[in-house]
Design a protein around this nucleic acid. Structure first.
Lengths: 227, 227
DNA sequence: TTACGATCCGGACCGAGGTCCGTTTAATTT
DNA sequence: AAATTAAACGGACCTCGGTCCGGATCGTAA
């Protein structure tokens, strides 16, 4: 374990326009409490009502129906409140996905093998892909709608956690390679937008995509031919 | 040659909300004329003025400064005209990139080897990646700004042309593999958003990214170990 | 040259994301 | 319990992408 991913520091030295202000990001597997700097009572209540309202809107009208004003109205709250709590629309949508994401993280960080620790790295990699594909397949629409602007895609915490995990496994499996780049490659294969394209637009069965993952992992982690 | 990519039909049976109405998409290497159904004189004039105005705005204020109203105003044209001609903001931005994209396509479809026909497939693949990386590095900002909503990312003509090319080379190099999925993987590595992340946010030198491409191509096209 | 129909133009209009700031309210201190 | 302060609230307001339709313009055919 002991991921040197270093979520909080490093990477973009920029001023980071607006912290989500939300306990939404999981930086360590199981946060020892401190899930957000403890909101004020009314703020916490409104946050819950907003999430509930948003979830209802998603269920009723799909992700496209989740307009900030509609959510605010449904939660009987001012529009400003929504933005203060979640930063922007993407933040709200990601908060909606947060619970499932945490469960997923827990599974691959500390769950039972082969997904969790205990299995050989390549096997964990294979299991990780399957789990990630399943997770992408569930609420695909929401994941697409929650996609931030392209220059933030790689900075959102869930992506970085997953990336860090793949990176660690890759370093064990192919210590001599440029694992950071290979990890990005593997991550790309699991991108919700690609899954959407393959399954919905190309009508590709999930089984084939999963087989493709196994094949890709095999190729990426294979011992090199002497050439 | 003879790409069975089949740009016009297939894929999304949906009503395709709004054709770009523009001669912007290159479906064959060198369109034998017919670059758009020959616009009316005033329409053609306005189109040119709009593109010129947009380019000037990009140069002066960056891609973010390209607002539809600003472009319309700078071109001395009504806002509606911009949308009729280019469909939406993404369409306008892509039209701005179209010229360079055509040159790139010409280079790998029918230019001199190793990028063009004549070299062995793996070598062409390597050259293709280098060229694509260079192309992504130039006007990265514009490419990011032109990125459409995630559910269209894989449907825009330039992407499909590139994909078809990689697919063809891959089929020659590794006939037994699921080349469609491998092609998507390779394409992902060249995604402008990833390049932006690696170069600008992770400060990774282009040389390393290019080495990573060679390595990736090698792994993907390597003869499999009997295992 | 004139008449006609298809195409294009322009800008008023709308919806939604995001900002701002005066007001309210919860926690804390005295 | 009253005062204080930091945080949260709400909704008016702004910008910008996108739509619409009455009117102007172009190409063509007579």
């Amino acid at each position: 374990m002991l991921y040197a991913v270093d979520m909080s520091t490093a990477l973009p030295p920029g001023p980071q326009p607006e912290e989500p202000l939300d306990g939404t990001q999981v930086l360590v597997p199981f946060g020892a409490g401190a899930d957000g700097p403890c909101l004020r009572a009314d703020a916490a209540r409104n946050r819950a009502r907003l999430l509930e309202a948003a979830a209802r809107l998603v269920a009723e009208h799909g992700a496209a129906g989740v307009t900030m004003e509609a959510v605010a109205a449904a939660a009987k709250v001012g529009k400003g409140t929504v933005f203060r709590r979640f930063g922007d629309r993407t933040g709200l949508l990601m908060a909606l996905l947060d619970h499932e994401e945490k469960k997923f993280q827990a599974a691959f960080l500390s769950g039972p093998p082969p997904l969790g620790p205990g299995a050989p790295p390549v096997e964990r990699l294979r299991a990780f892909g399957c789990a990630a594909l399943r997770r992408a397949a569930d609420d695909l629409d929401l994941q697409l709608a929650a996609e931030p602007y392209p220059d933030r895609r790689f900075l959102i915490p869930p992506r970085r956690v997953r990336y860090g995990h793949v990176l660690m496994l890759l370093r064990q499996a192919v210590p001599d390679a440029d694992c950071e780049l290979l990890a990005q490659t593997l991550m790309s294969y699991l991108d919700p937008a690609l899954i959407h394209h393959l399954t919905r637009q190309r009508k590709m069965p999930m089984q084939r995509i999963q087989d493709g993952w196994y094949d890709l992992v095999a190729r990426v982690t294979a011992a090199r031919q002497p050439a």
